[in-house]
């Protein structure tokens, strides 16, 4: 029996990178040799399978498993690249009411017998889908972007999590653009942490490599070069209890912008 820790990735707001974060953290932990399952609870609008590049392997889904139409093992899809990494996909032709929170609790406790980490991708919103996604979770990671609207929603979700008994969630700030932060056009990390007052798990720069890897169906974390990949690897190391410094975005700008800066500073 493994570590058996269930972590929900949530945000309130849509489009901030929950699914990308779930895929990358799941893959990143599997790269360390852990048994990991990523669970998509966004029933009706599933995406995690596409980001993981496993859509073509789906036969059964989470609703089939919960309803007993198939065994749990039949519903789990093995990753195409990493041993020990599995996906439990959402159903596409049903809606959020197809599952109840109690059923999620039971499902997650079964998954805990097999896996070290259960990473649960939450849907946007705070309705039933959200309640399902947090029902079996031990911990929560909140994803936000440096926009007031996303931070506002994150704050709301942190409050809801507390009400449901999940305290001390951790924060991931996604899609930071250092150039904009420096000009004062974007909220910086300190501002956001100040407002939300929770522990920071990591920051992720806005990166083209994410778009490319998402379209390819291969989470970026396994690539060597992209800065975003490094950021996700750092997050995984922190989850595993190692101390890793925050990415220094200033010294990691592209070469081109450095050359431009030199030219213009003269």
């Amino acid at each position: 029996m493994g570590i058996g820790k269930a972590i929900v990735i949530t945000s309130g707001k849509g489009g901030v990178g929950k699914t990308t974060t779930t895929a990358n953290i799941g893959t990143g932990l599997a790269m360390h040799g852990y048994n990991v399952v990523v669970v998509d609870t966004d029933i009706g609008l599933r995406n995690l399978d596409v980001v993981m590049g496993l859509e073509n392997r789906i036969v059964y889904d989470i609703v089939d498993v919960v309803d007993g139409n198939c065994r749990l093992k039949q519903g789990l899809i093995r990753d195409k690249r990493f041993d020990g990494l599995y996906l439990l996909p959402a159903a596409q032709t049903k809606d959020k009411t197809a599952i109840k929170p109690e059923q999620m609790v039971e499902l997650v406790s079964k998954l805990k017998e097999e896996f070290d980490y259960i990473i649960i991708d939450s849907p946007a919103g705070i309705e039933q889908g959200f309640k399902n996604s947090i029902a079996g979770a031990d911990e929560a990671y909140i994803v936000t972007t440096p926009e007031i609207s996303a931070v506002r929603d994150a704050d709301r979700v942190i409050g809801l999590l507390e009400a449901y008994g999940i305290s001390n969630p951790k924060l991931i700030i996604n899609r930071i653009r250092y150039d904009m932060v420096k000009r004062g056009d974007m909220m910086n990390v300190e501002d956001i942490v100040d407002i939300l007052a929770i522990d920071l798990l990591g920051i992720i720069p806005d990166d083209e490599a994410i778009v490319i890897s998402t379209n390819k169906g291969e989470p970026v974390v396994a690539e060597e070069k992209p800065l975003s990949a490094k950021a996700y690897r750092n997050i995984c190391n922190r989850i595993l209890g190692k101390e890793v410094e925050l990415l220094d975005l200033e010294n990691n700008e592209g070469k081109l912008s450095k050359i431009l800066k030199l030219l213009f500073s003269k």
């Binding site: 590049g53 073509n56 392997r57 036969v59 195409k80 390819k216 169906g217």
Partner: peptide, 8 residues
């Protein structure tokens, strides 16, 4: 019988 699309 099930067959799936190649990856990519």
């Amino acid at each position: 019988i099930i067959s799936r699309k190649p990856d990519g």
